[in-house]
Simulated assay, not measured.
Amino acid sequence: MKRVSEAVDSSDRSPREAPVSPPELLAAPGFLARRLYQAYMSAWARNVDSTMTGPQFAVLTAIARFAGTDQGSLAVTVALDRSTMADVVRRLEERGLVMRTTDTNDGRRKLLYLTPAGSETYNDVYARARDLDEKLLAGRTPVERQILMAELTTLAELWENIAPLS
């Protein structure tokens, strides 16, 4: 690690030249994950939907796949804690995209379904999200894409085990 006395003199750069990320940050996986996340969020807002968040889309995807499943179980499938899941579902319900019903066998369980507007919205956003995926993975062969996705999945699982969701 560089000490302050070892820092690079900024007067060596032209006034318009931005400094590059320090190697200490480029060697930190969390820094790179944050950069990826920031770039992805910006790309999502410009290319997919500026009003629907990634977690909202993940919840719509899970409901589309597992209609009638309880809210708590779906939270696990989209890597959200229970309180965040409840907030996301409430917002989607307020927008008329999701319907919650009480399980007739267990009044504590809330079962989730897409409304017709939710299905339409999901299909529209899904198509744009897949287009963004293509842009993000452009230039990679199918095998390279598969390897990258497997590595990202492994990292996500490892990091989730370090700081599990509550």
Rank of each mutant, 00 (worst) to 15 (best):
W44R: 05
G96K: 15
D81Y: 04
A18K: 10
L114P: 01
E17S: 03
S21F: 13
A18S: 05
D133V: 06
G54M: 12
Y37D: 07
A18I: 08
E94H: 04
V125N: 09
E24R: 09
F31H: 08
A33M: 09
S73N: 10
S21K: 06
R65M: 11
R35V: 09
P29V: 03
R82W: 01
P55N: 13
R108H: 06
T101K: 09
I63M: 04
L97H: 02
V125E: 04
V125R: 06
Y40D: 11
R35T: 01
L74P: 00
L132V: 11
V76M: 05
R109F: 01
T121M: 12
P55H: 13
L74W: 06
L92C: 02
G107K: 15
Y122G: 00
S119Q: 08
A45R: 13
G54T: 07
D124V: 06
Q38G: 13
V125W: 02
L111G: 00
E17L: 08
T53W: 08
Y126V: 04
S83T: 11
G96H: 08
G54L: 15
G54W: 10
A75S: 13
S50G: 07
T77D: 12
R35E: 10
A43F: 00
V78C: 12
R65C: 09
R108L: 05
A86Q: 04
V20T: 10
G68F: 04
P15V: 15
E120V: 09
T77P: 01
V78M: 14
P55Q: 14
E93Y: 05
M41F: 14
A45K: 13
K110C: 00
A39M: 10
V89Q: 05
D81L: 07
P22L: 13
F31V: 04
A75D: 01
G30H: 08
R109Q: 02
L80D: 02
A67M: 08
T53Y: 07
A27K: 12
R65W: 06
V20Y: 12
N47G: 03
R130Q: 11
P29Q: 07
A75P: 09
P55Y: 07
R46S: 05
M41P: 00
F31Q: 03
R82E: 09
R109G: 00
T121P: 02
T77R: 13
M85N: 01
E93K: 07
A86S: 11
G72I: 02
R130G: 04
T104A: 07
N105K: 06
